[in-house]
């Protein structure tokens, strides 16, 4: 991605967040056909085409600086959005290593990492950070390692310890979430954490996903896409702050849906961590308004059809009940009934 950051955009108050034409074209549309149902849609996290959101392990895009600032705002008000249980320290260092090495390798103009044994030197140019520290020695960093590095990364991170044939949610940085709470879920097993998801348990999705993840291999990360919708480009739709955003959903009409309603896509990546044998789950959030989305004719037709026919249980679970009809009505003029080509490319 280019070095140009949207330095001043916001995800609250005046909501000045916008996508450039280039950002729209690379948006990770999660619908490969005109309808949607859950599946274990996990694939190897291999490098995608140049310029795509999967070109590198962690995508750094035009929203990087603004998203890091938004994270700092949330953490200042609610420090418990970052938590790590004491036995997760080795996994914290694993995460710091993974993120620093990936960013320095993939974006050398923005980040650099120099190592002399355990003495590391990290430079983050967009955020103007220059840090010498000793890998493994928490006292040499201004914050805990996971806290430190995820304040410099886009997307949420959850670290799961593996024991007793299960995965336990025991550390994380969660400030850009779709209505779930790390503070509430900390310490839960994999299926407890996913308890509220409808239909998928009955489909056996979590049995298969857990079995797959328990055998996730070092050096072979995987990814999947998930999605929901959000009113305004608001990253922090947390249960803690529900009073601030819940009522937004009652303000949507067929006239303003194009600007208020955003498709919210999570690029979820999963990596086995080497020292701790834990798994880090990255949840990178992309937001696009229906108006931005409709600049791609195929996507407008497809999203119109997916929303119109979405299973009622998913409409409720994703919190779309109040405004789904308005969004469908706003998108309807873009759908002339002509077929869409397979796959998600904008064509």
């Amino acid at each position: 991605m280019s070095a140009v950051f949207n330095l001043h955009e916001t995800f609250r108050d005046d909501f000045s967040y916008r996508n450039s034409a280039r950002a729209i074209r690379r948006f990770p549309l999660p619908f490969s056909e005109d309808s949607y149902m859950y599946s274990v849609n996990i694939e190897p996290h291999l490098p995608g085409p140049p310029g795509s959101v999967t070109e590198f392990a962690f995508d750094v895009d035009e929203h990087y600086v603004a998203e890091c600032r938004e994270r700092a705002i949330v953490l200042a008000a609610e420090p418990l959005r970052y938590q790590a249980l004491p036995h997760m320290m080795s996994s914290q260092w694993d995460c710091l290593e993974l993120i620093m090495e990936s960013l320095a390798r993939d974006y050398p103009t923005h980040f650099s990492l120099a190592k002399q044994g355990n003495r590391w030197h990290w430079i983050n140019r967009p955020l103007q950070i220059d840090q010498h520290f000793t890998f493994g020695d928490t006292a040499t960093l201004p914050r805990q390692p996971l806290d430190y590095i995820t304040r410099q990364a886009q997307g949420d991170f959850v670290v799961m310890d593996q024991r007793e044939g299960d995965l336990w949610t025991e550390a994380g940085m969660v400030t850009t979430q779709a209505d779930w709470s790390l503070d509430f879920d900390l310490g839960m097993t994999f299926k407890e954490w996913h308890g509220p998801v409808p239909l998928a348990h009955e489909l056996g999705v979590f049995d298969r996903a857990l079995k797959f993840l328990l055998n996730l291999r070092l050096g072979q990360p995987v990814r999947r896409l998930n999605w929901t919708m959000t009113i305004h480009p608001r990253l922090d739709t947390s249960p803690e702050n529900y009073p601030q955003w819940g009522t937004d959903r009652a303000t949507v009409t067929a006239q303003n849906a194009g600007d208020l309603v955003h498709l919210r896509v999570e690029l979820q990546g999963l990596w086995r961590l080497p020292r701790s044998n834990a798994i880090v789950f990255g949840i990178r959030c992309y937001l696009v308004s229906l108006r931005e989305l409709a600049t791609v004719p195929k996507w407008a037709r497809r999203v119109h059809r997916v929303l119109k026919d979405l299973h009622p249980a998913l409409v409720d679970y994703k919190g779309l009940t109040r405004y789904r009809d308005a969004a469908v009505e706003w998108l309807a003029p873009f759908d002339d009934g002509s077929p869409t080509t397979p796959g998600t490319a904008p064509e």
Binding site: H87, M88, R163, R217
Partner: peptide, 12 residues
């Protein structure tokens, strides 16, 4: 092949 751990220590 890359290491795999099926016999890890319990961290708690």
């Amino acid at each position: 092949a890359h290491p795999v751990n099926l016999f890890g220590l319990d961290k708690i």
